[in-house]
Design a protein around this nucleic acid. Sequence first.
DNA 1: GTCTAATGCGCG
DNA 2: AAAGCGCGCATTAGAC
Length: 627
Amino acid sequence: MTAPPAGPPGCYVRRPGGRTLTIHTPAGFDPRAFTAFAAGEEVLGLDVETSAINDKGPRHFDPGFTVRLVQFATTSHAWVLDPADPAQNAAIRATLADPARRFVTHTNYDPLAVWAVFGIALGQRVIDTHLISKLLDPDERSGHGLKELTARHLDTGLTEAEAALHARMRAAAPPGHRAGNAWLTWGWNHLPADDETYLVYAGLDAVYVRRLLPALLRQCRAFTHLVHMEQWLAARSTAITIRGLLLDRPYTTELLTAVNREHTDAETHIAAALGVPGGSPRFAAWLDHQLTAAGVTDLPRTPTGRLQITADTLTSLTTRHATALPADVRELVAARLTMARTSNLIANLRSFLNSADPDGRVHPQINTLRAKTARMSITGPALQTLKKHDPRLRHCFRADPGHVLISCDFSQVEIRVAAALSQDPTLIRVIASGVDIHDATASLMYGPGFIEQQRTVSKRATFGTLYGGGAGALAEQTRVTPQTARQVITRWQSTYPRVIAYTRALARQTLVITPSGRRIPADPARGYANGNYMIQSTARDLLLAAVYIFATLHPQVQLWLFVHDEVIIQAPRADAERLRDALQEAMTTTFRGVPILAHAEILGTHWGRLHPERTATTGHPERPIAA
DNA sequence: GTCTAATGCGCG
DNA sequence: AAAGCGCGCATTAGAC
């Protein structure tokens, strides 16, 4: 273990890896000494200890969320401050609000907490070691936690402090708070704020994040421009989280009530007819029996042999096998299908309402570097995965009063990026001519008299090739025979040979380096994925570049959300046309001689537009809305 | 009951 | 020769 306390009064001293680290505790707070400490360092490690976070709720924006400790650190000294003490609270605020001050944190958890509790926006004054680590190795599973990173790059002092804290929490948790992870939740909320293990852990967190920064930065020499751009994007994204999206709560509540009723009706119907809940395995057994009696045997099963009840299998029952089944069975299958379809809607609507703060705003977390390709993810709620063809879901979110939402998305950006990277002359010519790319591809493959099915298959072949797919997958998707699929792929390959040559060359590489300088390690067993890494990642960076240009030219405009190849902004109604045009212009560009096109439109007050003839809350089966 | 891995389905 | 890619979350299945 480390040496016993031996520092100044009110301090703990630890010597992990032979370095002396001093932790100043709240009990020993001295305003003048703290001011002198803070003045001596331009970039401070910043960490906060908070009450436990409930992932199902508004997280930082829950009224019950509190910050219990705030820590500032150099590479050798940490000050642990207690915001409940007025003098320490003032010192915290003064330090955080100082416009000349820079901080280093791990993830944006701490800036969000600082905003939620102190109302201070750190904005571009914070650099995130998690983000830098993701640039060094974009694989999420590579261990980007602060503990793993400090153990790898520095020493094990922090992991040991954490182990000690967890042991302390387990030991101190009262009965009833020991099962599962309950001791952890109890610990973050209730472990006494003067507990030595807690204070040492808290102080070391800030010291280690400060020590980690130079260790990681040194390894980024070949792509420091990415550090800058990603930090910019992360700060803008944190601003989106902080501002939040306004939920149309009356609409959402009413819709949930209606859909709940639809779900319950279907459930009750099944229960009344069979005496079995529709969602139970016994329903599956009953249906299995009915199908066997009707001679239907080709439906998918679980590994244990149970009939698989999915929306897909149920749908095929109501279509392909409709005539084989008695009317009462069909009716119950339809009811079960209603349950399957509404349960997804219900789950989404509940997550919207649960994640809203008391003002009716949701604060989605934006992970700006989630995928290996640097694609972003949005969680809490997962707004990128809402069923698009049912506009009732997106309609739950609305612009702030007096504002409208404006959306702009790239047109077929991945095909264009593939053309630009491969410099395939035929694909470049097709794109430059401005005709429909899939029409042109089908025409090149089958002649100008191609039929619709040939267009569909060649379109699938295009995407399959960009993603590294083969004949098997193409046959599976289009229900053509494997031989036909192989022929289609061969034709595609001879139509766009440079694309094929390009992706084959990429497949042999062990490291993919994108035009923006991003490093993506190849998966040795799946070299065919490299082409997709390159294309998807480059498309993402084209979006970042466009957003950067737009936001720099229009710094006051609020970014609202990103959906992979789409940006949504919020603007005052009076500026809508002007900003729609400006956004489209910023996103329209040329990449290596290939035009990258974008289309912007004013969405209006709500994200999703309901069909004019259909009311929102009657629970009609979803249907695509004509463009 | 509790937990995790796999599956299904939503998006691009 | 063959291989689609990248995500999040609810539910299900199976293990403990």
